[in-house]
């Protein structure tokens, strides 16, 4: 077994065993809220449980020859090939998976305060009925303003997408492993990749909050937030396409004495241009939906309007706004699906 699969197996098993151990401990000890908040001590307990889990994993696999789930998932292919077929309930790894999922499910039920009582409670239910009645009887007096606002949202999303395209286009080549081969280029590749991963892992909603402080609440902040997020997402999707291009045309163009830029333009771009367009149309579509959400934190457009009426529990007005959003999102979704289908 090579080192990386050994590490993965151990980490996976220590997480599942450690998790089970800690849940068991909490169920028995019934700690108070105060005790639960002691992050430092509790982390140490979890760490200890993980170490115990790691030892358990190693003992099971290497001494008792019982395959754990980590081993079943991360064992190298040549080792997996030697396995005989057995039903899952006859294997340790099968039970490890089943028990872990069941325990996670129970923890989730507790943590979300899942309650059939609340769901079926008469008072609460009556409130929901009032809301639905409002939604189902939209106040169309609001329609003109809602339409104006969603137009703002659509163009906010459009501008964010358009501004993101050239940046993502350039970045996509700088973030493709098969282009950035020489050591200095590879260093740049790693830096950019990390930078984009971090950028992408920050939700557009967070960016909207940052920009609403920076440039003030409104559609401009929302657009900037969407743009940053689009650059990071498109650059990743684009660069993955660049990494899958076939080498043949590249060699063919290189052999004519073409420069690096010419090689990219003539050998790589033709191979990626259709998927690029397809991703971009889809991104616009996503951006319209995201722009609505971003509006909720003051990013402008229909989202901000929705927030205003929702806050005042004016359900018929909210109904009208939701109708407009649904119609536009549906239309964009259809249009982009047809477009992407045709571009395949």
């Amino acid at each position: 077994m090579n080192r990386s699969s050994l590490i993965r197996r151990t980490v996976f098993d220590s997480l599942t065993f450690g998790f089970l151990g800690v849940v068991f401990l909490i169920a028995i000890a019934q700690p108070t809220d105060r005790q639960m908040l002691e992050l430092g001590r509790n982390s140490l307990i979890f760490l200890a449980a993980m170490v115990a889990g790691a030892v358990l994993s190693s003992v099971l696999n290497d001494v008792l020859k019982i395959r754990t789930l980590g081993e079943a998932i991360f064992a190298p292919a040549h080792k997996k090939a030697q396995l005989e077929e057995t039903s899952w309930w006859k294997t340790f790894s099968g039970w490890q998976l089943a028990v872990t999922i069941v325990v996670m499910f129970v923890v989730a039920l507790v943590k979300t305060k899942f309650s059939l009582y609340e769901l079926l409670n008469e008072d609460g239910f009556a409130g929901a009925v009032r809301l639905f009645q409002g939604l189902l009887n939209p106040n169309f007096a609001l329609l003109p303003r809602a339409v104006l606002n969603i137009i703002e949202t659509i163009f906010m999303a459009f501008l964010a997408t358009m501004l993101a395209i050239p940046i993502a286009f350039v970045l996509s080549f700088l973030c493709a492993k098969n282009i950035m081969k020489s050591p200095p280029a590879f260093a740049l590749y790693l830096v950019l990749r990390t930078f984009l991963n971090v950028t992408r892992s920050i939700e557009a909603l967070i960016w909207a909050i940052i920009f609403s402080v920076w440039v003030g609440i409104g559609p401009f902040a929302g657009m900037l937030a969407l743009m940053i997020h689009s650059v990071a997402s498109l650059a990743k999707q684009y660069s993955e396409m660049v990494e899958t291009v076939s080498d043949g045309p590249i060699e063919g163009i290189q052999s004519t004495g073409a420069t690096k830029l010419q090689t990219i333009w003539f050998a790589i771009v033709p191979q990626v241009v259709l998927p690029y367009i397809s991703f971009t149309v889809y991104r616009w579509d996503i951006n319209v939906r995201m722009a609505t959400i971003i509006g909720l934190v003051g990013g402008g457009g229909i989202g901000t309007m929705l927030m205003t009426y929702q806050g005042q529990a004016m359900w018929p007005e909210v109904g009208c706004i939701i109708l407009v959003i649904a119609a536009v999102v549906w239309a964009m979704d259809q249009a982009s699906a047809y477009l992407r289908e045709a571009l395949k």
């Binding site: 063919g252 163009i253 420069t259």
Partner: peptide, 28 residues
């Protein structure tokens, strides 16, 4: 490379470009 032409087993043309455009790439 400009002074040495090369042809390949899998032709290595640019599929989406026209024949003429492909041939012109010899002038790159």
């Amino acid at each position: 490379r400009g002074r040495i032409g090369m042809i390949f087993q899998h032709f290595n043309l640019i599929p989406r470009h026209t024949v003429l455009s492909n041939v012109l790439m010899g002038r790159l």
